[in-house]
């Protein structure tokens, strides 16, 4: 139940995409998302789909794992489609009672849905092929220029990597405490909203206590190893751009070029 959240879950396998520098993947995902919002037309969406399909093919991650991430936004997707479908003014296609579906509405709904799907799948590809640690490493190095503006890049990256690292641990912990309380006759599934909220207390109190305990232990362990922030800290495996990373950048540029050309010409 809790494990259905794909976003931020790494799929272990061997592929070119897995080996790419995280900075490439971060920049690529960002550019891809931006490209989705520029040059709206059918040909443009086909180009975007082809590019996505190519990357998914190269990543060796089964497609169903990408779709799993979609489940979480199904509701959002539905609302977006419905609102666009019924609330866009324009030339009427079908009229049902007070609701009217317009040509523009249909157009918007379809494209908005496609865009959201591409967006989620696109970012899932990144998180499925990059370990959280790699991701924050990439972020830390990629955002280093911001240090100039006194942004605590290292600290933010460290906070993020700890938070990401703790997600599976806390999920497991939740699962365990939940089972322990169910074994004592707790009921998390029935009753009205207030009753259910009350039923969460035996779950949340132990969970918070354990989270604080873990945070304390971690802080102690970091201090014991002389952690004192990012100043002068070196890495065991520093990020270095290789040939495949340059090639990947080239591919992304090529895609952007294609998308722009198609968007302008057609």
């Amino acid at each position: 139940m809790l494990r259905d959240i794909t976003l931020g879950q790494y799929y272990q396998t061997e592929s070119v995409i897995h080996r790419l520098d995280p900075r490439v993947k971060l920049a690529g995902t960002l550019l891809y998302i931006i490209s989705l919002f520029l040059f709206e037309n059918i040909a443009g969406y086909i180009v975007a789909a082809l590019f996505l399909a190519l990357v998914i093919g190269l990543s060796h991650v089964p497609f169903k794992f990408m779709v799993r991430g979609m489940k979480a936004i199904l509701f959002l997707l539905l609302i977006t489609v419905l609102f666009n479908l019924f609330l866009t003014p324009g030339e009427a296609l079908v009229s049902l009672w007070k609701l009217t579906i317009t040509r523009e509405g249909l157009h918007n709904a379809v494209f908005m849905a496609l865009r959201l799907c591409y967006l989620i799948i696109g970012s899932s590809v990144m998180t499925l092929t990059t370990t959280p640690n790699h991701l924050t490493d990439g972020m830390e190095k990629g955002l280093r220029p911001l240090k100039f503006f006194r942004v605590p890049v290292h600290e933010v990256a460290m906070i993020m990597s700890i938070a990401l690292r703790f997600i599976p641990i806390l999920l497991e912990e939740t699962d365990k405490i939940m089972k322990a309380q169910i074994a004592r006759g707790a009921d998390f599934e029935s009753g009205n909203l207030i009753k259910r909220a009350k039923a969460m207390v035996p779950l949340l109190v132990p969970l918070f206590i354990s989270a604080f305990r873990r945070a304390n232990d971690l802080a102690m362990a970091m201090e014991a190893r002389c952690y004192h922030g990012g100043e002068g800290r070196t890495k065991m495996k520093p990020l270095v751009y290789r040939r495949r990373d340059r090639l990947a950048y080239l591919c992304i540029l090529l895609y952007l070029g294609c998308k722009a050309t198609v968007g302008i010409l057609l």
Binding site: K176, A180, R184, G185, A186, D187, P202, V205, P206
Partner: peptide, 23 residues
């Protein structure tokens, strides 16, 4: 469960033990 003390949540010992039979 293993490390069962991690499931304690009530304000006092007695009410925590009451949780099971109350359910």
């Amino acid at each position: 469960f293993q490390y069962p003390e991690h499931q304690l949540f009530e304000v006092d010992v007695f009410s925590d033990v009451c949780f099971g039979p109350k359910n």
